[in-house]
Design a protein around this nucleic acid. Sequence first.
DNA 1: AAATTATATATCAATATTCGAATATAGTAA
DNA 2: TTACTATATTCGAATATTGATATATAATTT
Lengths: 106, 106
Amino acid sequence: MKEEKITEILKALAHPTRLKILELLKEGEKCVCEMLLPLKLHQANVSQHLAILKHFGVVEVEKKGLYVYYRLRNPKFAEILKALDEILIDLLNEERKTLLELRKAK
Amino acid sequence: MKEEKITEILKALAHPTRLKILELLKEGEKCVCEMLLPLKLHQANVSQHLAILKHFGVVEVEKKGLYVYYRLRNPKFAEILKALDEILIDLLNEERKTLLELRKAK
DNA sequence: AAATTATATATCAATATTCGAATATAGTAA
DNA sequence: TTACTATATTCGAATATTGATATATAATTT
C-alpha cells in the first residue's frame, strides 16, 4: 500500500540528526568524515543514521577509495525540506498574530 | 532547534492512518464520522490520530453542533504529500530501469 | 605484512509509539 | 431529565526506535 511506503520514507526523515544530514547534503555530496564536525556526533552513530536514509531510498552512496560519499537520491527531498521550513515559519507567524489579537481584545 | 520542530511534524505525518486522513482532508474539511467509513477503523482510534495531527499543527478543528470538522492547517501539507507520491513513482521507475539493465547485461 | 584511517555493523538497555478496550464528555432530542 | 449520538481521553501491553559501546571491514600507507 502506498501509505505504508510513504510512512517508511517519512520515518526515515523524522529525526533531528537525519534532518541535519539532509541539510548538509542539500549543498552537494559529502563523505562521512565531512559530516562529523558539523554534526558533532560519533562516527558510528552518523553511519547508523546514514544506513537508515540509504535503506529507505533517501540518499545514495558512492565509494571513492577510502571515502564514502552520500548525496540526495531525489531533488524532491530538498523541496520537501523547504516546504517544512515554510510551514514552520507560517506556524510561528500565526502564533504571533494570535497573541497580538488576544492582547488587543483585553 | 528547527530540526526538532520539523521532526515532530514529520512524526505526526508518518503513519499510514494519518496519511489516509490527510488524503481525505485534501478534498476539503470533513467531520470525524465522514472519515470512519473510508478509514474502516474504530472511532476512538481515528480520534487518537486526529489528536496527534492537531497537536503538531497539521490540522485545525471547528466544532459545529455535534460534529467536529477537521481541515489541513496549511495547504503546503498537500504539496508535501504530492512530492512524496512523486518520489515513490521515481523510485519505482528507477527500480524497473535497473532490472531491465541487469537483464540486458546477462 | 603491519599500522592507520574511514566507515559499517551488532548488541542492548532506555525510551517512544502503537492499538484496543474501557470510559468520559458534550451536544441534541425526546 | 433521560436517552442518544458524535467525539475524546486514559490505560496498558506489544512493538519499534534510539544512542552508546564494542567490534568488524576495507582501502591506504609504511
